[in-house]
Design a protein around this nucleic acid. Structure first.
Lengths: 172, 172
DNA sequence: TTAATAAAAGATAAAAAAATCCTTTATTAA
DNA sequence: TTAATAAAGGATTTTTTTATCTTTTATTAA
């Protein structure tokens, strides 16, 4: 084992990013943060590049770019090539929720199917957690559908919530 | 950030043990099913082998055996080597909940830490999903702690719930 | 029309999770 | 005491997820 502090600090950062996931894959966490960040910029009529997005949400740029591609294909955000291009969201995206984002990246594993993996789990033939999972899923659904992404972006702009850990510091 | 090598080394080790997943990793799903199955057999005073467990819960036997090892190390079930040996649960395990099982296999990322991966997310500096995630976690916690594993096993024995998809067929 | 820009796409690499295989150790019943 | 049994442990392989790098395509401003 390498005891060099610089190396270890880097390891902590790296491993912290890769692991410790709640119920979203790393990719869908980046997607959620990206899409909210894009909205914050679109609300000030600015398109943003993949590079800026990756830097702002503290995610690997190239990986973020791939995720942004998926989001564009799923029509969750828009994109424009060339100078002054970038990613954006507009009125045509205002109905989209975080649930759509998670489904576009992770599929609907989080919203349907047996929580223990039984192919035929149902009300009639439930797994031991079936009815409890139904309840938990209601909560997850409401978490990801009650506020529009635009509103979440407004809350970030107001400083009520954050996408990074700058804890109040003012950006240049 | 703490730059002390001893601290960082410990962090690397600790965080490295955490595994990521959606709600449950494949491993913890097998663990949940295994531990309930072991209880159903222990309630009829039968020890069960890894081979039988794997077959019954429809999981790879060798992988299941590895998971069972972890569960034994975490004192979630007991084991005995040799002829007539196998895995079992007894009174000493009756206080253990599925939450303990999930924590033993997946770590506690499901129960703590920022859902979007921000290192300093808190009530004071919340991520956009912070308060909603707190609510969802309450539901997950209750799902995994209200019924004892023994009771879940009783429900399986009664045929109220199932660990496989045999949908009512009688085992030989 | 062209040079610069930025997304899209493709290919590859690295890391982690899932799964398998083989050897060792403990136990017990004959 | 020994042969059979079953868990424990170690090493390796496969698959999936995460991450990176390079090339191509579209756009636009000069």
């Amino acid at each position: 084992m390498n005891f060099d502090p610089a190396f270890l600090l880097n390891e902590v950062t790296r491993i912290s990013r890769i692991k410790s996931s709640f119920m979203f894959s790393q990719a869908s966490k980046y997607a959620i943060k990206s899409v909210i960040y894009v909205w914050t910029k679109s609300l000030e009529d600015r398109k943003v590049g993949a590079k800026e997005i990756g830097a702002e949400i503290e995610a690997p740029e190239a990986f973020t770019a791939k995720i942004l591609q998926q989001l564009v294909r799923a029509k969750i955000i828009g994109s424009q090539k060339g100078p002054n291009g970038g990613f954006y969201a507009d009125e045509s995206h205002s109905k989209i929720t975080l649930k759509d984002v998670v489904r576009a990246i992770d599929g609907d594993h989080l919203f349907s199917g047996c929580g223990l993996g039984l192919p035929k789990c149902s009300e009639k033939n439930p797994c031991p957690l079936h009815f409890e999972i139904v309840k938990v899923r209601k909560g997850i659904d409401s978490m990801l559908t009650t506020k529009s992404i635009r509103l979440l972006a407004v809350e970030v702009i107001k400083g009520e919530t954050q996408l990074t850990d700058l804890t109040g510091s003012v950006e240049s």
